[in-house]
Nucleic acid binder design. Structure first.
Length: 313
DNA sequence: TACCAGGTAAAAA
DNA sequence: TTTTTACATGGT
């Protein structure tokens, strides 16, 4: 087992605990992401080799610095560079929160939310494929259920590496999921239909007909047009992909039930808006609607939002 | 026991 | 073109 170290300097303000915590929903381990005692760990597949990324903060929110360690059998300097780049991406260290903070000045709700979550950066999935599978898996089920299914899938089909007596899991590859087949995914508690969606997409990737990672170079509109052609992907999934996998600042999954619930609590005293209504309301956050969503959900998960007595429909 | 939950495709109107 | 309905699972 070898180990190499590099440093990263996020764009301030950057709160490492808040940002890494949002990967795990502020609850320690979540699937392939682990946060323990201020240490964020994530197993990666770098050109076929398994490398454990380990990140911890060596700075402060206003003068942020991170130490990245790459651990694994035969880790090269090139692997370290790849790991370092992936962690920089997945922790969103380059995101500029200043413009967003400036734009919510005087906005009664988000000005308060952003000041309480000062330094939170939007996080990003390691791969577009991972974000796609997780989004499909999470369609129309409670977050608690999605968590169970997600963990089961990763721990069953993700490649593993043992480091210091602990076992770490990668996110499964398209090829592995194809091999698992419908039956394998059904055993992971995916519905028949979701299993078909995931395998259909994995098959297109294996056939070379679909390159999800290349979407990073497409415009928001092109991404939505391309991915909604896939069976199992609608407006909601496409927009979450823009936020979680492609780091776009102004996406808005207007059908999202949890999103509508949070907006209703923060702005409408419990009245739930229709899809078109929230969409129209969301222009107040443009061109930072993705950031507004990230902050509202983080505030919700952190218990910073006072619950309204009753949700009205 | 019902109904609901961070939707979508396909059928029906 | 717009509006229902089946889908599947664990929580409440």
């Amino acid at each position: 087992m070898e180990s190499l170290t590099a440093e990263l300097y996020p764009k301030p303000p950057f709160d490492f605990g808040l940002t890494a915590g949002s990967h795990t929903y502020f609850r320690g381990t979540y699937g392939a992401d682990m946060l323990e005692d201020g240490d964020y760990r994530r197993l990666l597949n770098i050109d076929g080799r398994l490398v454990l990324a380990h990140v911890r903060s060596t700075g402060t929110t206003n003068e942020p610095a991170l130490m990245v360690t790459a651990q694994g059998p035969q880790v090269s300097g090139k692997d370290l560079a790849a790991v370092s780049d992936l962690m920089a991406w997945n922790l969103g260290i380059d995101a500029d929160m200043g413009g967003f903070y400036q734009s919510v000045k005087g906005e009664p709700v988000l000005e308060s939310v952003t000041s309480q979550l000062y330094g939170l950066h939007p996080t990003r999935a390691v791969s577009v494929f991972e974000a796609m599978v997780l989004a499909i898996l999470g369609q129309q089920i409670a977050a608690a259920v999605a968590r169970i299914v997600r963990t089961l899938l990763i721990e069953t089909y993700g490649q593993t590496l043992g480091v210091d007596g602990k076992t770490y899991h990668c996110f499964p590859t398209p090829a592995t999921l194809l091999e698992a087949g419908i039956d394998g995914l059904r055993k992971m508690k995916l519905s028949q239909r979701k299993a078909e969606y995931v395998l259909g997409i994995a098959q297109e990737i294996e056939d070379g007909a679909l390159d999800l990672e290349a979407l990073k170079h497409s415009t928001d509109e092109e991404v939505v047009a391309r991915v909604t052609r896939l069976r199992g992907v609608g407006h909601w999934t496409a927009h979450w992909l823009l936020i979680r996998a492609l780091s776009r600042t102004d996406a808005f999954p207007s059908g999202d039930l949890a999103l509508k619930r949070v907006v209703s609590q923060l702005y409408f005293n419990g009245r739930i808006l229709g899809d078109r209504e929230v969409e129209e309301f969301s222009v107040r956050w443009s061109p930072y609607r993705s950031y507004a969503i990230v902050y509202m959900f983080a505030a919700d998960r952190q218990g910073l939002i006072a619950p309204v007595d009753q949700i009205r429909r």
